[in-house]
Design a protein around this nucleic acid. Structure first.
Ligand SMILES: [Mn+2]
Ligand SMILES: [Mn+2]
Ligand SMILES: [Zn+2]
Ligand SMILES: [Zn+2]
Lengths: 158, 158
DNA sequence: ATCCTTATTGAAAATGGTTTTCATTATCAT
DNA sequence: ATGATAATGAAAACCATTTTCAATAAGGAT
């Protein structure tokens, strides 16, 4: 795990430089926000968090930075069914372990779960190898997502 | 498999009636389109297909009907990363077998794959049971999706 | 077959997350 | 420090989807 999070960690900066991008305050701050949350933030969430300390940073820049981060594979983008995209640090840069998502259709709660992850990883490996051979498809990312009713909503639903 | 597809099959009509909805020409025609394609159509795709024979049916009705079908569990809604939602008959009403999706990030091609489905189903069952016990979460739907580069795009990329 | 209630519909307008535009500013190799 | 140009913010544009509302059609009752 050579990547240190936190302010201006050479890992992040190096990634940007390595791709020919500049290392800017906006980028550092946005990454800092993503690094220090356990939530799945929307662009606007991030914008608000950033805005407290850096009111000059605009929503447009947040969107642009997130796009870059996703392209570079440093951040994952999710669709949990509310209209806005949600973002989370990629595994290698996160303190969270490899996980998938459980989304409540009623209240929108999102649970990170890690149960049976080993089995999933194994199955993924096998599947990817099979699909790559059969379709010549090179898999870059994989996602599993369950949705339904969370404990609370399940109870109320009755 | 008690459900017959095709024009006005009592299966579809019964489903609507059973939920207290009326059985209308628009609904019949939209279902007919979904039943006779192997593609993952957008609302607008469906609108255009319907429009040839029934120019009076509007895009709004297509959206509304799709929402209903998704709510009733007869149709699945996907996000393949282009901006529009994509729709496909649920397994029980489709001639396609249970499958998952392989999405090309470059050209947008979507492949239905069925490899290792048995393993996946087994793992899903186990996972669902575990999650249900641990989080009280009642799972209604599950999705797996891989993305990357398809055979063609992989070759060109070089 | 006709009436009546109301679910359904189409057209147009509104919505809202995201993207584009463009003039200004900041980064960084020199 | 200087200059080339990548990055940025504000405002406008975009565009899939949703909402509004008056007109229409479905289907139970008669
Ligand atoms: Mn997560
Ligand atoms: Mn499919
Ligand atoms: Zn819930
Ligand atoms: Zn492709």
């Amino acid at each position: 795990m050579p990547w240190r999070g936190g302010k201006g960690g050479p890992g992040w900066e190096g990634h940007f430089r390595g791709c020919g991008y500049r290392w800017t305050v906006s980028r550092e701050v946005i990454i800092e926000v993503l690094s220090s949350t356990r939530h799945h933030m929307s662009a606007e969430d991030i914008y608000h968090a950033v805005h407290k300390d850096y009111p000059a940073i605009g929503l447009t820049t947040v969107y642009r930075t997130l796009d870059l981060l996703v392209d570079m594979g440093l951040v994952l983008k999710f669709d949990f069914g509310d209209k806005r995209a949600r973002y989370e640090l990629a595994e290698e840069f996160s303190t969270k372990e490899h996980h998938h998502h459980l989304v409540c259709n009623r209240c929108g709660r999102v649970i990170d779960y890690t149960e049976f992850i080993d089995d999933e990883v194994e199955l993924f490996k096998k599947t990817e190898k099979g699909l790559s051979k059969k379709y010549g498809f090179q898999i870059k990312s994989r996602m599993i997502q369950f949705s339904g009713l969370c404990g609370n909503c399940n109870r109320e639903q009755k």
